[in-house]
């Protein structure tokens, strides 16, 4: 067997160089969308003469105009500014929940992939049960226990996504464990910590990034859905889902007040999905189908 032919370790990934070399159209468009959303979310509320919570009863449900490009809602608040502030909530909840899922899921997946047998079973069997719940249902259960509010939404979505991240991490760990160069490293007496940091983590990076980018998009949708049904962010906070639920009652008089937040949601999710597709094509070609 040609042990010496196997690479001793993989070259360390260089994110920026990699990204510029792999800018496929979906990735470019996706990154551009996310970039524009970020820009809008921070610039427009700052530059606009209106605040997101600025009520103006005289201007209730006014159609789009130069002053209010996306019209105003039932309380006369500027829809554009509210949508942009809503983006902040969407992005914050998505980032927070995926981060949480990564913090919990990566160590769990790593441990269960690296230590087959008892540890693997102790970790994965309960996670299997969590994954057996439809995602939204599990989130609803968590909200039922912990109540509503932005932080709780982050925790709920984080819990829902933890088993997904853990599974991806476990699978890549299992694959990497059996690679020739990892066996070689073990034979040379490398410590477990060293094997994990130099061999397994770099190997898992691709699939985990792909999964995380896809989950970001779905976290945005999940937050909006939860807020929409009253189990998410609490009212004064202008979440996109919450806006849809209040403006729903005025749908016929002021369609712009429901079209805009939903359209805004779709654009952001589209951005995350395109990035996910672009990354998957390059990082995880065998890519599993999306999980939502």
């Amino acid at each position: 067997m040609a042990l010496d032919a196997a690479p001793i370790s993989r070259p360390a990934p260089r994110p920026v160089a990699w990204l510029t070399a792999n800018l496929t159209p979906p990735l470019v468009v996706g990154l551009a969308i996310i970039g524009l959303v970020l820009l809008g979310a921070f610039l427009i509320p700052a530059l606009s003469p209106f605040r997101a919570d600025q009520i103006n009863p005289k201007n209730s449900l006014a159609g789009p105009s130069l002053l209010h490009p996306l019209g105003s809602d039932d309380l006369g608040r500027d829809v554009l500014v509210r949508v942009m502030v809503g983006y902040r909530i969407s992005l914050a909840v998505a980032a927070g929940s995926v981060l949480l899922a990564l913090m919990a899921g990566l160590p769990l997946g790593l441990a269960s992939g690296y230590l087959p047998g008892l540890v693997d079973n102790l970790i994965m069997r309960p996670l299997d049960v969590l994954m057996a719940f439809p995602a939204i249902l599990l989130a609803v259960v968590v909200m039922a226990v912990l109540g509503t509010g932005t932080a709780v939404v982050v925790i709920a979505i984080g819990i829902v996504y933890t088993p997904i991240i853990a599974r991806v991490m476990r699978a890549t760990t299992l694959t990497a464990r059996d690679e020739l160069y990892v066996e070689a490293a073990r034979a040379r007496g490398a410590s477990a910590l060293r094997i994990i940091t130099t061999h397994i983590l770099p190997n898992s990076l691709g699939p985990v990034i792909v999964q995380a980018s896809i989950l970001l998009g779905f976290a945005v949708l999940l937050e909006a859905a939860l807020s929409f049904i009253g189990l998410g962010v609490r009212p004064p906070t202008p979440s996109l889902g919450l806006m849809l639920s209040t403006e729903r009652d005025f749908m016929t008089q002021a369609p712009w007040a429901v079209v805009s937040p939903g359209g805004a949601l779709m654009v952001l999710v589209l951005g995350f999905n395109l990035v996910g597709d672009g990354l998957r094509d390059r990082l995880d070609p065998r890519g599993r189908a999306r999980v939502r």
């Binding site: 849809l244 729903r248 429901v258 939903g262 949601l265 779709m266 999710v269 999306r290």
Partner: peptide, 11 residues
């Protein structure tokens, strides 16, 4: 894939 289904429902 990107459209929020409850919003699509409203539309």
């Amino acid at each position: 894939i990107s459209v929020p289904d409850f919003w699509l429902g409203m539309i």
